[in-house]
């Protein structure tokens, strides 16, 4: 019993992997939802038309 933890680098990789996968997964679903929300007639011009006033 040294009071010092050994190993667990695999757990760390799991945490980083899950976090990264989660971010990518959320990003992907967002793109899919955005595509689904697009009206059939809409093109790129419509999307860019709203750019100038876009703030966040």
């Amino acid at each position: 019993m040294t009071g010092v933890m050994q190993g667990h680098f695999d757990t760390v990789l799991w945490v980083y992997g899950l976090t990264t996968a989660g971010l990518l997964g959320y990003f992907a679903t967002l793109l899919l939802r955005l595509r689904a929300s697009k009206a059939p007639t809409s093109g790129q011009t419509r999307v860019s038309a709203q750019n100038p006033e876009k703030t966040s």
């Binding site: 019993m1 040294t2 009071g3 010092v4 933890m5 050994q6």
Partner: peptide
């Protein structure tokens, strides 16, 4: 069985 960090003074 205590966690690995268990020691005196913790």
């Amino acid at each position: 069985i205590p966690p690995a960090m268990f020691r005196e003074g913790i």
